[in-house]
Nucleic acid binder design. Structure first.
Length: 486
RNA sequence: GGGGGCGUAGCUCAGAUGGUAGAGCAACGGCCUUUUAAGCCGUGGGUCGAAGGUUCGAAUCCUUUCGCCCUCACCA
């Protein structure tokens, strides 16, 4: 049935009978594959370890490729240097086995730096075959479900995740250099807040209470502003119990930053310089390819009011003086689904999200959103109908909202109540995100300094910086439907 | 949840109008002492995602179902 595995098990048995442990322990490797090539010296003694990814037999000689995390090095194994028995045992090795070798470097006739192997030690016998060496692994499902195979075979995937790691490291460096403190706040919360999304629920037996996985860390970070930490950030997972898509994974990495005494503009400046810094450090360019378009991160990024975007798109100057019925009619003509229950703000936002936002390819800060949409932000001085916020849009999707944070506890309570009284959208009976967090309000009553805050979807940021077109390509183990059978 | 596409050997893929499943790589046996997608000779390998139906006959047509991809909805 499973013929390939049977054959490998047979080899494993044979090795065991010869006294070879097919799952060896420590192997002191002094050299990486890359080091063998970069620090090449004829006859240099090396010891390297890694996975066999190609074996080319030539009678009394064998060439093999050994791959470690630094790259690939060719092995050259000869019967006259290994001895007859050891050489014969090479037949018991398979593609995918992990071995350690000792030998010395030389260059072949074709100019390939190789290890003349004197000793080869099996460190781990692979019982599963590797995907095809030339075409690699393309099957999306296997690539996501068995990411290790994807990583073994597709070098560019490995490189992308290295890049992700560097991006996250650079974010920490960037913020720490500017005096921000990294903190960790609860992922399990009695009340999920800071956003409007359906939460995941769990139960904490010891306290006999329902808990939620956080949908955002916001309300806890603000408590820290109250506590006197003036510049904080948290870079970690949040969870939302919503649908999967190219842009959504139920657990995703979010960076939230708060700066006391700042506002939405200080945050805009911070976000702009940080993303540019990341692109320079990690991509080495500000021109980022996204499929067939190019995102140009060069300053200055566009800043435009929500109102002006809408008016501009609809080629009018006074969209907001329309009645709700008139708005609904225009939206209908744009092929948008509008229900009679929708308010003017909701209809307008529908137009924004479906028609305007997707067209914002170059970095754009959208300013002054309607207050109803953002319950945790401060109202604008001149216009109480809008809040002092930005929404950074790149490549047609929202990357980072930022606010001048609301620090008025009385106003905050009113906004929470307003939000609570709105009927939840159909099919979302269990939300929990709309219960009022009294403990948070008490914190605000204690006095929170004015502050600027922002949240950046790190997965989406990585998508832009790597040109990936699905969030699944930037998450090592993206959520898929669990599979019970194989 | 709606719409569309896909699912054939371990991997990458062929399989017009229905006629009883193929290639390359991988595997196995043999030859080969500087190859590198090594080469040459030979061999094995399939519940054609699953179940049901139409038919003399189904990978192919129909229905149901599972999974993945795209898209819409939900997701401030």
């Amino acid at each position: 049935m499973d013929e390939l595995k049977e054959q490998r098990l047979k080899k494993l048995k044979e090795l065991t009978e010869q006294g070879v442990n097919p799952y060896g322990g420590r192997f002191d490797r002094r050299d990486s594959a890359a080091a063998c090539r970069e620090e090449y010296r004829e006859e240099k003694k090396v010891s390297v370890a890694g996975r066999l990814t190609a074996i080319r037999g030539h009678g009394k000689t064998v060439f093999a490729d050994l791959r470690d995390s630094s790259g690939k090095i060719q092995l050259y194994l000869r019967r006259d240097t290994l001895g007859e028995d050891n050489f014969a045992n090479l037949k018991l090795l398979d593609l995918g086995d992990i071995v350690g070798v000792r030998g010395s470097l030389f260059t072949t006739r074709k100019g390939e730096i190789s290890v003349m192997v004197r000793e080869i030690i099996l460190l781990s016998k692979a019982l599963q075959p590797l995907p095809e060496k030339w075409h690699g692994l393309k099957d999306q499902e296997i690539r996501y479900r068995r990411r290790y195979l994807d990583l073994i075979v597709n070098e560019e995937v490995k490189e992308l995740f290295r890049k992700r790691s560097r991006i996250i490291r650079e974010i920490r460096l960037f913020l720490e250099e500017r005096g921000f403190l990294e903190v960790e706040t609860p992922m399990m919360q009695p009340l999920p807040g800071g956003a409007a999304a359906r939460p995941f629920q769990t139960f904490y037996t010891a306290l006999n209470t329902k808990m939620y996985l956080r949908i955002a860390p916001e309300l806890y970070l603000k408590r820290l502003l109250v506590g006197g930490f003036e510049k904080v950030f948290e870079l970690n997972r949040s969870f939302r119990n919503e649908g999967l898509s190219r842009k959504h994974n139920p657990e995703f990495t979010m960076l939230e930053i708060y700066e006391a005494y700042g506002d939405c503009r200080t945050m805009m400046e911070l976000v702009e310089s940080m993303i540019i810094h990341l692109a320079e450090q990690v991509c080495g360019t500000l021109q980022l390819n996204q499929g067939d378009t190019v995102v140009n991160l060069e300053r200055p990024w566009k800043r435009i009011r929500y109102r002006d975007l809408i008016n501009g798109y609809l080629k009018t100057t006074d969209w907001f003086s329309n009645s709700t019925a008139e708005m609904a009619e225009v939206a209908g003509r744009l092929d948008l689904e509008v229900s009679p229950a929708m308010s003017a703000v909701e209809i307008t936002h529908e137009i924004y999200e479906k028609c305007v936002e997707p067209g914002l390819i170059q970095p754009t800060f959208v300013l002054e959103l309607p207050a109803e949409l953002v319950p945790l932000a401060r109202r604008s001085e001149g216009d109480p109908g809008v809040v002092d916020v930005f929404e950074l849009v790149i490549n047609g999707f929202e990357l980072a909202p930022g606010y001048s944070e609301l620090n008025d506890p009385i106003e905050q309570r009113r906004r929470f109540q307003e939000q609570e009284s709105r009927p939840p959208p159909a099919g979302t009976e269990e939300r929990g995100g709309e219960k009022i967090d009294e403990d948070f309000l008490t914190a605000l009553e204690t006095g929170m300094p004015p502050a600027g805050g922002t949240g950046i979807g790190i997965d989406r940021l990585v998508m832009i910086l790597t040109g990936a077109n699905s969030i699944r390509d930037v998450i090592l183990f993206p959520q898929l439907r669990p599979k019970t059978d194989t």
